[in-house]
Design a binder for these strands. Structure first.
Lengths: 211, 211
DNA sequence: TTAGCGTCCGAACGTTCGGTTGCTATAGTG
DNA sequence: CACTATAGCAACCGAACGTTCGGACGCTAA
């Protein structure tokens, strides 16, 4: 990294700091991310790093934003062109599974990890994490409702219940991949999603449950 | 805590340290558990605390053991008298849900939290966490197989698949309780378990899924 | 009575933490 | 060209970290 930078180049520096931060925080956690390590790995001074954010907490929030962009690009963007409702719900589960399978973040799902790290300590970071989960849950709920309205899912389906179960599957996948490195995990997740989101042909008998 | 203790009383001291450690580590994590804080809260010196374990890592392993005893007493012991198979599987899901609902550990499931904290860093602590999950998963698998053999679950049931899904439900419950404090979460979990572990009367048609 | 063991303290160790301060060199502005 | 704003550095701060060490104390066995 060159000794001194223009105002325009400084944005690149900030961006580079965030890239590095996401990589570190993914495995070490947002709290395990330290200014000193960041500075060393980037060939900068600590104050040079901190100058872009002001405080570690502000850095953590910025890292959360950056991770959110990556998540969105990986999981949500690919499915915006898919037909809303059941099709999109299935598609987003698949991109999500793939995102975990490909280890987009080396430490697993960035937000699941952040949730576990911060759910017990109040503050802006916790609030930001919770807000992202709320927003994400909201999108899944919307697609589920559309699927029910379209008759693609049974009329009595409780969207909150279904989304709860889907989140559980993805958390189980994340956990199994990270802790056990079990290559069958993604298969389990896909199979469960397929079963749970089985098409419900309107005005037709439910087929005799292949499992 | 009295100024000095006999050799016999020292076991109480060690036990008190572990109790305190479990409480702290539940919310702050096993790494966030510090010798200094422990010493302050117990009215001891840092060396007095560390003398019982030798190192922080050894303390963490001891804390994991203590937490395991609590988990076992809360979740497993109550169901050992239940008929093996589907009945016990249902019962253990219920004690598990209850254990999360009652916040036996204030920071949620101790081992799910430990898994997320250590899955990315090799070492004895990580190995211990993984071992506990393996053991627990093994017990669930055993009960599932028994249930299938007894005909209480469909013959084609894949035990690994079912256990994967059950773990997901409990992780979703843990997450939802800790991050969102959603009072409906336990209801979602119970409903999903009930559906997933619905009785499968041998030699009878599957009833038209009340869903 | 005394030797010895185990418990625990107090102090210090080297390191790392987040953060601050004073400064220099540069880019952009008039 | 002079002036201001800022990116970044080097040095440093107080606090907290895990760990080590010598010694003081209480108990038990010889």
């Amino acid at each position: 990294m060159s000794p001194r930078r223009s105002a325009a180049e400084a944005r690149d520096t900030r961006s580079a700091i965030l890239d590095r931060s996401v990589a570190i925080a993914s495995t070490e956690g947002l709290e395990g991310l330290t200014i000193g390590r960041l500075a060393t790995e980037l060939g900068m001074s600590k104050s040079g790093v901190l100058g872009h954010f002001g405080s570690k907490e502000a850095l953590q929030l910025a890292v959360l934003d950056r991770a959110g962009e990556i998540f969105r690009a990986e999981v949500w963007t690919p499915v915006v062109s898919v037909t809303p409702g059941l099709a999109r719900l299935r598609a987003v589960c698949e991109t999500w599974i793939s995102y975990l399978e490909r280890a987009v973040f080396p430490g697993g799902c960035f937000f699941v990890a952040a949730a576990h790290e911060f759910d017990g300590r109040p503050g802006p970071v916790r609030d930001a994490v919770e807000g992202r989960f709320d927003a994400w849950r909201g999108r899944l709920l919307k697609e589920t409702r559309r699927a029910v309205e379209a008759g693609d899912l049974p009329a009595g389906t409780d969207p909150g219940q279904l989304v709860f179960e889907l989140m559980g599957l993805l958390m189980a996948l994340n956990h199994t991949l990270q802790l056990h490195h079990d290559p069958n995990a993604a298969g389990h997740a896909r199979r469960a999603v397929r079963t749970r989101l089985a098409a419900h042909p309107p005005a037709a008998r439910p087929q005799p449950a292949m499992k």
